[in-house]
Each structure stands twice: as C-alpha cells, then as structure tokens.
C-alpha cells in the first residue's frame, strides 16, 4: 500500500468531516487502494506532456457584461435553516 504520507484524519478535517473510529478503520484501506491505482498511473513517463486541466479543447467561453434579474429575496432565503432581516443566519463567526 502506498498510503505513506497520507493522513486520513487530516484530510477529513480539511473537508470538515467527523469520522467515527470504525469509519476511520474502514475508509483507511479504501483510500489506500484508490491511491494504489494512482501509483500505477505514476509509472507512466509523462515528461514533456502539458498537464491537461480540461479534456475538451474549448477556450474563451464568456458572456457579455449585462445584468439579468436576480432571485427575489424570499426565494433566495427559502432554503436557509435560519434567516432574519434579509440575512442568512449562521453560527457566530469568530476569528
């Protein structure tokens, strides 16, 4: 397994996921086998190849700078767990 340097807890924390101990022991090997696939890809010699961000050879997709209607405020807030005074209410942000 090529999971050396892979820290499951660290990755979970970055994704704001809380893993129970049994999930950790289950996901650890699963991630390991996924990484093994990538280890196989790493065997290919890709020197001299440009990294490809997009498989489709498409560039310059833009729109003109024109205003279009926005959502009504009540519609925008409709899915919010809490709102007040037109604002989305969230747990207090502390720096």
């Amino acid at each position: 397994m090529s999971t050396a340097g892979f820290d499951l807890r660290y990755v979970a924390r970055l994704a704001r996921l809380e893993l129970a101990p049994e999930e950790e022991s289950r996901f650890g090997p699963q991630f390991g086998s996924i990484l093994d696939y990538f280890a196989k890809l790493k065997e290919l010699n890709v020197s001299g190849l440009e990294p490809t961000a997009h498989p489709v050879p498409l560039v310059n997709v833009t729109r003109p700078d024109a205003v279009r209607p926005s959502l009504p405020q009540d519609e925008a807030l409709r899915n919010a767990p809490a709102h007040a005074g037109g604002l989305f209410i969230v747990p207090k942000i502390v720096e």
Partner: peptide, 27 residues
C-alpha cells in the same frame, strides 16, 4: 467596475437590500 457579477448576471451594485442581487450561481 462592471455592471454584472463575475460569473452570473446579478447586478454589481453597492447598497442594495441584503440578498437581492443573488441567484443560484452566486449562492
């Protein structure tokens, strides 16, 4: 200084009532 936002057609305007220049893209 544009009329609309970067990725959608919502107005780029200061001072509007909260959450009135929003759409599914910028939300």
């Amino acid at each position: 200084k544009t009329r609309s936002k970067m990725w959608c057609g919502c107005a780029n305007e200061f001072g509007a009532p909260p959450n009135t220049h929003v759409c599914p893209v910028c939300l």
